[in-house]
Structures are given as structure tokens and as C-alpha cells.
């Protein structure tokens, strides 16, 4: 008898996560992500063209509202589209993970209540589609930047680094809302406002300096919102704007903290999930 014995007891410590469990979470997340990708543009006329169309539409809206109507100026004499669109792909990724990942447990109740798998798998799976979209939008911007500035390979490693930071922060937040949504659906009711608020409070379509100068000495507070760090980082990578300063560390810390605590929160509700959902 070489088969492993699994033991479960009421008094098991809450935080017990085996390597097998993490592997399982990944493979289930991959299966769900695959499903989402396969179904992504089912029954649409344009099909996969939408993954190009969506970021272009988002860019158009930002351009019309912030540049033409509100007349926001990019700093350092940069062209506004170049400045704003640098941070847009990462924001679209964050937005997708939040809007799809946070309600994923509630939306998939029928599966969650019948099969056990690590619950992080569902929100995590939403990162799949988000990453594909991010890649497409990033490629579009890469071509645009290359055409506008002649820079092709500069700063790409920074873009990658800050994209990972955005991914972790968004997943952490999605985990938290998903965990809370098991018992309190309030988070889901607030979700659209949260996403909208984050978009306005994060300097994506306007310069970070405008916000930071309003806070004066407390400018670092801004970076408690990890997505500010992501937006800054994106412009640092793409356009060489700003510098690697202390504030980013705050955002990194918050992103990492959100991810770890969010994973823990989901793990904590896992035990009684189907009793409360």
C-alpha cells in the first residue's frame, strides 16, 4: 500500500496549502481559462477581431473625453495619445480581472457546490483572457510607439515587470472581493463603482504629477493604490518618464500584500464556502 493517506480534521490549521493543491489550482484555472478563451467571441460577427477592436475603442474614448473635451495635456511636451495609451493596456487587464474574477465564485455556484477544487482557480482563470487581451493591446501600442518614436526594444523588460505587478494586485483584489462575496454580496454590488473609481483615481488618462502635486508632501499616499505604481511603471518602461523612485516600492508592497492576503482569504472561506454561498 503505497498510496498516500489524506487526513482531514476539524481542527486542521486554516493555513495548510500543499504543493499538490497549488498544482491543482493551476490546472483547473488553466481549464477554465481555456474554456473562456474558446467561448470568448462565440456568436459574434467580428470574432477575434474584437481583441483588437476593444483596446482601440477604449483608446478612442480616452482620447475623446480626456484629450478633446477635458483637454488634458501630457507633461514634458509629449503627445497625449503616446502618454495615455502607454498605461492603457495594463489598465484593461486589471479591469478585466476585477470585473470577471471577483464575481466568478458566485457565477459558478453550480460547479463550486458540486466539485471541490482550490477556489483560487476560478478568479485566477480570468487572468487567462486578460493576459491575451493585454498581449494584443501591448503589441498595438508597441507598433504605435515604434512608429511615433523609433524606439522598438527599449524598456520592454520594465513593461513586463510592471505588468506582473498589475496582475498580482488585480488578482489579490479579485480574490478578496470573491472571498467576501461568499457571504456578503455587497462587494459585487459595489464592483462597477470600484472599477470606475479606480480608473478615475489612477493617473492613466492624466499625468500623475497633477494628482501628486495636489497631495504635496503626502504624494506617497497615492502609491498605496498599486495601480498608480503600475501606470507610472508603464510610462517609465515605454517612454522613460520619471524614475525608479521609492514610491514604486510602496505599490509593489501593496500588490504583493493584496495577493498573499487575498489567497489566504479565499482559502479561509473555502471550508464553509458551499454552506454560505
Amino acid at each position: 500500500m503505497s498510496k498516500p493517506v489524506t487526513t482531514v480534521h476539524a481542527k486542521d490549521p486554516l493555513w495548510r496549502r500543499s504543493a499538490a493543491e497549488i498544482r491543482r489550482a493551476r490546472s483547473v484555472a488553466w481549464a477554465f481559462a481555456r474554456r473562456d478563451l474558446q467561448l470568448r467571441y462565440a456568436q459574434t460577427r467580428m470574432g477575434w477581431l474584437w481583441s483588437i477592436g476593444q483596446p482601440l475603442l477604449a483608446a478612442a474614448i480616452v482620447l475623446i473625453v480626456f484629450s478633446w473635451i477635458v483637454q488634458v495635456q501630457a507633461p514634458y511636451g509629449l503627445s497625449y495619445p503616446l502618454y495615455a495609451f502607454a498605461a492603457l493596456p495594463s489598465w484593461l487587464m486589471v479591469q478585466h480581472i476585477l470585473l470577471q474574477g471577483a464575481p466568478s465564485l458566485v457565477h459558478n455556484q453550480h460547479i463550486v457546490s458540486k466539485i471541490f477544487f482550490p477556489r483560487t482557480a476560478l478568479p485566477l482563470s480570468k487572468a487567462g483572457v486578460a493576459l491575451v487581451d493585454f498581449t494584443v493591446a501591448t503589441l498595438l501600442f508597441w507598433v504605435y510607439r515604434g512608429w511615433a518614436t523609433g524606439m522598438w526594444i527599449e524598456g520592454l523588460h520594465w513593461v513586463l515587470l510592471f505588468a506582473v505587478m498589475g496582475l498580482y494586485a488585480a488578482l489579490g483584489l479579485a480574490y478578496w472581493i470573491a472571498a467576501l462575496s461568499v457571504r456578503y454580496r455587497d462587494g459585487l454590488a459595489l464592483l462597477p463603482f470600484l472599477v470606475q473609481g479606480l480608473f478615475l483615481l489612477t493617473p492613466i488618462a492624466y499625468p500623475t504629477e497633477r494628482f501628486a502635486s495636489a497631495l504635496g508632501d503626502y504624494a506617497w499616499l497615492l502609491y498605496l493604490n498599486p495601480f498608480v505604481g503600475v501606470a507610472d511603471g508603464m510610462r517609465f518602461g515605454w517612454l522613460g518618464l520619471g524614475d525608479w523612485h521609492d514610491f514604486h516600492v510602496i505599490s509593489f508592497g501593496v500588490a504583493f500584500g493584496l495577493f498573499v492576503s487575498g489567497t489566504w482569504a479565499l482559502k479561509a472561506v473555502e471550508r464553509t464556502l458551499i454552506d454560505d454561498l
Binding site: 500500500m1 498510496k3 498516500p4 493517506v5 489524506t6 487526513t7 482531514v8 480534521h9 476539524a10 481542527k11 486542521d12 474554456r35 474558446q38 467561448l39 462565440a42 456568436q43 453550480h110 460547479i111 457546490s113 458540486k114 466539485i115 471541490f116 471550508r271 464553509t272 464556502l273 458551499i274 454552506d275
Partner: peptide, 30 residues
């Protein structure tokens, strides 16, 4: 493993697969 015991516990050997419903997770469009 869908819910955690309030007291006591259990152990089992090998891999456990539970079938509480037929076709869980099936998606109509796939």
C-alpha cells in the same frame, strides 16, 4: 472536501473522486 467538519475528522487512502452530479461544469457552447 466541499465543506469542512465541525468536529472529528476522516482519512482515506489514495485519490478520492466525488460525483455528486452528472456533467458538472459542462458548458452548452462547447
Amino acid at each position: 472536501g466541499l465543506t469542512h467538519p465541525s468536529s472529528g475528522g476522516y482519512q482515506y487512502r489514495g485519490q478520492m473522486t466525488s460525483l455528486l452530479e452528472v456533467g458538472t461544469g459542462f458548458h452548452p457552447d462547447l
